[in-house]
């Protein structure tokens, strides 16, 4: 019998496959297609203090083996999240992790406090730190160790729930950011968010995305994700959740070997909303075939010898 279960902090996951923020809505859109309870967990769309319309279109364009997006954090805001979504999550039999985005330290704190003040069945919070800090001239939290440390500390003080920092790959040294988050007291690191990209139409000479710069995701960034997980694994002692271009169990195993304890599937959901569940089945088969009694054995287990 293969054991796919994992545990991060005190949260038990029936398997290590979650769906990534912004690629599975609020988790209730695809009920007719997918039994979400079979997923290891759902990370919901980034929530901000106020509702947000997001950027003008075009917000997305296909690229080789992936896509660029600049949605601009379109979301319903924390109050509607509390009143409309939390009751739904209570009925689910899987882990729901709320992803939070802010434009200032105080905004992250206010959102977290507001949700902590409700009795809820969330399994934890994932903090999207790839957001510009308006108080620091738009410098992203996630590119600066001090900002990351300060943010982590403030949030840690305010919750005992699972707290995850989601890191951006668009930094010089992701390991040092991960260390700052660990020092601040987070329970896990997820990596990576999208990679900065751009696409221009040679015929019209216009940008293909309204905002110009946008975020690359999908299989195109998988090696970038794996490399970043590997670097972080070397630098910290807390669990890592690997993200970037996952489409199959082989991809999951690649991330686990590089040091991830769990993974999130993102862009692949747009092609196949049930891909997460297919991957879980494949993962089971992989473990049987390779005599892996527990998926946990694979974490960081790259073989050096011939």
């Amino acid at each position: 019998m293969v054991d796919l279960s994992i545990k991060i902090k005190n949260v038990e996951f029936s398997n290590p496959v979650l769906v990534a923020s912004g690629t599975f809505g609020y988790g209730n859109e695809v009920n007719e297609l997918v039994d979400v309870n079979r997923l290891g967990g759902i990370v919901t769309k980034s929530i901000t203090l106020h509702p947000r319309e997001g950027n003008p279109p075009p917000r997305m364009v296909e690229t080789p083996s992936g896509l660029l997006n600049s949605i601009g954090l379109a979301n319903i805001g924390v109050e509607r999240y509390i009143s409309e979504m939390l009751p739904y999550y209570e009925e689910l039999d899987t882990n729901v992790i709320m992803n939070i985005a802010g434009s200032s330290l105080q905004e992250y704190i206010t959102i977290l406090e507001r949700v902590e003040g409700t009795s809820n069945y969330l399994s934890g919070y994932e903090i999207n730190i790839s957001c510009p800090n308006v108080e620091k001239g738009g410098l992203e939290f996630g590119v600066d160790c001090d900002l990351t440390l300060a943010l982590t500390k403030e949030l840690r003080k305010r919750t005992d729930k699972l707290l995850i920092m989601k890191l951006s790959p668009n930094v010089t040294d992701i390991a040092s950011i991960a260390k700052a988050a660990e020092l601040g007291g987070v329970d896990a690191i997820s990596a990576i968010n999208t990679v900065v990209g751009m696409s221009i139409n040679p015929q019209t000479r216009k940008q293909n995305i309204f905002t110009g710069l946008s975020g690359l995701s999908g299989p195109a960034i998988r090696p970038v994700g794996v490399a970043n997980v590997y670097k972080i694994f070397d630098a910290v002692d807390i669990p890592i959740i690997g993200i970037g271009g996952i489409t199959s169990a082989d991809d999951v195993v690649e991330y686990l070997l590089a040091g991830a304890t769990a993974v999130q599937v993102g862009t692949a959901n747009f092609r196949d909303p049930g891909i997460g569940i297919q991957i879980i089945k494949q993962l089971f088969e992989y473990c049987e075939e390779h005599n892996v009694p527990s998926i946990r054995e694979l974490v960081g287990a790259i073989r050096d010898e011939d």
């Binding site: 695809v30 003008p56 279109p57």
Partner: peptide, 23 residues
């Protein structure tokens, strides 16, 4: 996606009373 999970497919509504914060 076609099913409401990616937020890419937006079109602008005619809205005479836009609020600062809305979705």
């Amino acid at each position: 996606c076609g099913i409401g999970i990616c937020q890419s497919c937006v079109i602008e509504r005619k809205n005479d009373s836009p609020k600062e914060h809305s979705y």
